[in-house]
């Protein structure tokens, strides 16, 4: 039937609004609401139960004077920088190797990416076994005749980060490779033809022409890898449980242990708020950069 006037604004499109309720609730209640809740309660002295008893910044003061948090931050920084650089380097290198019109490309890609399908728990347990000092790598090398060989990262506070890196890159570099390979494939064939006509060596083309063209792909990879690094938790639990001692503690584990183990909620909230701040420090410039670029185009 023909209507004479426009339908009411609120009811326009009401089915879509109804269908989007889960999304709206998730966005508002969980992502904004819960985050704000935690930030607010990080200024209280909640212990076993959350209480609105504000104590200013004292949770943060305690947090930053706790050696375990300091070690966690230090670990995360070292692990983060190494993992980021290594993952990007390995990912790009593998993508370039896979891009050489090789045989069995699908096979190699399947091998490189399969760990990504596994959980961090599985990854951690496997590498724990490979790095086991009595049976794993150290044992093998020693039994080959190098009896003085020592490589026991799981029990060496200085090397334990290496174990995390080996396992973390094993699990995650495949994703970077696949994204970079997609990026390489997305580059116009004519660029390669032009470089060949100009007589530029392949490796030079990759470094001076292709690499700068891959900036957006690198940006995406950096964001993804960084988000993964900050959330680093399962792998530590499965591989080292934070040990030896507190040598491989990370912030996410600190949060979990204080919230659910030590019944010191305020510390957990303060620590998680610090994690949120770190993420915002990465995400906001990136978002502004992308927004700015969209405006210019």
């Amino acid at each position: 039937m023909a209507r004479s006037g426009p339908p009411l604004r609120l009811f326009q499109n009401w089915q879509a609004k109804l269908a989007a309720t889960p999304m709206i609730l998730t966005a508002l209640v969980v992502f904004i609401g819960c985050s704000l809740w935690t930030v607010v309660y990080s200024f209280t002295n909640s212990r076993l139960l959350p209480r609105l008893d504000f104590v200013g910044l004292s949770q943060y003061e305690r947090l930053w004077s706790t050696p375990r948090w300091q070690v966690s931050i230090e670990n995360l920084a070292i692990y983060g920088i190494c993992a980021l650089v290594l993952t990007l380097a390995i990912g790009f290198l593998l993508a370039v190797l896979l891009d050489q019109k090789i045989r069995f490309e699908d096979g190699f890609r399947t091998i490189i990416l399969f760990p990504y399908a596994l959980s961090f728990i599985v990854t951690g347990v496997v590498w724990q076994w490979i790095l086991n000092p009595d049976f794993g790598l150290q044992h093998i090398v020693r039994s080959m005749g190098f009896s003085g060989f020592t490589f026991d990262p799981l029990n060496d506070p200085n090397l334990v980060i290496l174990a995390l890196l080996a396992a973390g890159i094993w699990q995650g570099a495949g994703l970077t490779t696949v994204i970079m390979l997609a990026g390489l494939r997305g580059i116009d064939e004519d660029v390669w033809k032009a470089a060949r006509v100009d007589g530029i060596a392949t490796w030079k083309t990759y470094i001076f022409i292709i690499l700068p063209m891959m900036k957006p792909v690198f940006a995406t990879c950096i964001v993804l890898i960084s988000a993964g690094i900050i959330k680093l938790y399962d792998l530590v639990v499965a591989l080292t449980r934070g040990g030896p001692g507190i040598a491989s503690e990370v912030p996410a584990k600190y949060v979990y242990d204080y919230m659910f183990g030590n019944q010191n909620l305020g510390q957990g909230f303060a620590a998680s708020t610090m994690m949120l701040a770190a993420v915002l420090a990465i995400i906001i410039p990136f978002a502004l950069f992308r927004l700015g670029r969209k405006r210019h185009v």
Binding site: A27, F31, W37, Y41, P50, A227, M275
Partner: peptide
């Protein structure tokens, strides 16, 4: 709402886990 949702994907879970326990 969609933008908030996508941003939310980057919020560390640790920030939201406790309030979700309460919910």
């Amino acid at each position: 709402f969609f933008t908030i949702l996508i941003f939310g994907a980057f919020i560390p879970y640790q920030v939201m886990i406790y309030p979700i326990v309460i919910i």
